[in-house]
Amino acid sequence: MPNTRTLLAIPLAVTLICLASASAPPAAKPATEATLPLLVTRGKAPAAALLAREAPWSTTVPGAPDPPPDRRATQRPLWHFAHVNRPTADKSDGDATRIRRAEHFRAGSITKTFIATVVLQLAAEHRLSLSDPVKRHLPGLARGNALDGRAPTLRALLTHTSGLADHTTGPRGLVPLTPTQAVRTALALPATTPGRWSYSNTNYVLLGMVIKQVTGRSYAAETARRIITPLRLSGTSFPGTRTTLPPPHGRAYTTGGRDVTALNPAVAGAAGELISTLADLDRFYAALLTGRLLPVPQLRQMLNTRAAQGHYGMGLFPEKLPCGTTVWGHNGRISGSYVRTAATRDGDRVLTFRVNTDRLADPALERTLLAAQFCPGAP
């Protein structure tokens, strides 16, 4: 039985605990949450959202050892979601522009990371070589046109050093085309310098055709089999020519305010057709950079930027932030949607943000948001 002194001490202890709790400062919000509204104010987007994913072992006490690799798979990542939408007098319109965590959106050129991963998996299986000329796999397409004379390799397509023009920059850039039509449209445009980096959607349209030739399945089916299904990316799909988004989804707008939620993604094809979610993109890039999708030699090739003069690897590009940290990822732009995913090289920390319009009025805001996420002590 407790004595009288113990009983008198209990209220005092409770009081001290309550005072300590009351005086403790509230937990600071992530720096990205303070930065995100700038995408709406200075960036002029109708709405913006982000989802950050962090492996739990990267937030341990400084100096404490990471858990062994065999325990990592059992640990659940930490997530942080934030969203903001432009204030509007029309309440119904404000609700329409709001971005929710689970909604589907068009991911644009982030598709390229998926396509590059499949091609590198096929290379690891010795079903193709990155040194193969395109005409080895697509002889009918090359025969009798300028592609045969240039003989770009698969490596040149992956790194955007093929010299092929971007078919989306021509007069038919916004018109849905078959892959063959897209390539022929590009060949009618002025070529760039082979061996020099020049971003071209045509490169990845061709890689999608190569995947089908090598595997007997479309790039969409092969990517689903190799990546989407194993990683359980339930919100990710290739819509083909379907103009609608799966539910749930919000609205998409051009920079001029026109609603372009309904869109035929055949205009992008293997270079930008993908539909996804914030969570799925975070999971995909985390899995890729932690080595779950590619053997070490192929992942090393993917991250090698020498062929593209430091601009690009294979379906990924680096960005060195002001604090010296380099992140890897890709962006995606398609009518009505802009998306950016970035991750640390080890895949422990990943951020995906998006706006429901074509581009930010102030492009520098993208770098500001990445620094807020990946630079310690960023404001």
Rank of each mutant, 00 (worst) to 15 (best):
A188Q: 07
R101E: 15
L19G: 08
R42W: 07
V84H: 13
I275A: 10
S237L: 14
A28W: 02
D280A: 05
A188Y: 01
T236S: 11
H160M: 14
G256W: 01
A372Q: 05
S198A: 15
S200D: 06
R106H: 10
A52D: 07
Y199H: 09
L189P: 02
A371M: 04
R217S: 14
K135E: 15
A361N: 04
A262E: 13
A82P: 03
T261P: 09
E103Y: 03
T193K: 11
Y253T: 07
R184A: 10
G108E: 09
T111D: 09
P152I: 01
S92D: 11
R367T: 15
I110E: 03
A165L: 04
P171S: 15
T305F: 02
A55F: 05
T277P: 04
V61C: 07
V327P: 04
A221P: 08
L158F: 07
Q121P: 00
N3Q: 12
K212I: 02
A45F: 01
L187E: 04
G336M: 06
G250A: 11
G377A: 02
N85H: 15
S109L: 02
G257H: 03
S237W: 01
V134I: 08
T192G: 14
R217F: 07
G332I: 12
A124M: 00
L177K: 02
I99F: 09
M302S: 05
T6S: 04
G240M: 06
W57Q: 14
H249A: 11
A73E: 14
S200E: 10
T326G: 02
R143N: 14
R242G: 15
G272K: 08
V134D: 11
A20T: 10
A266E: 11
G173R: 00
A186M: 06
T159W: 03
F374H: 15
A27E: 15
T185W: 03
A49P: 03
R292C: 06
V205P: 05
T192K: 12
L245V: 10
E366H: 07
H311R: 14
R225K: 13
K212D: 15
V260C: 02
L360D: 06
A378D: 12
L293A: 04
A378W: 07
L288D: 09
P171M: 12
T241M: 10
A55R: 07
A96M: 08
R136C: 06
T229D: 12
A270L: 10
A372D: 12
T97E: 14
K112W: 00
V339M: 02
V175N: 06
P139N: 14
T88W: 01
R71M: 14
G140K: 00
S162D: 12
G256Y: 00
S276G: 08
S337N: 14
L164P: 04
Y219F: 15
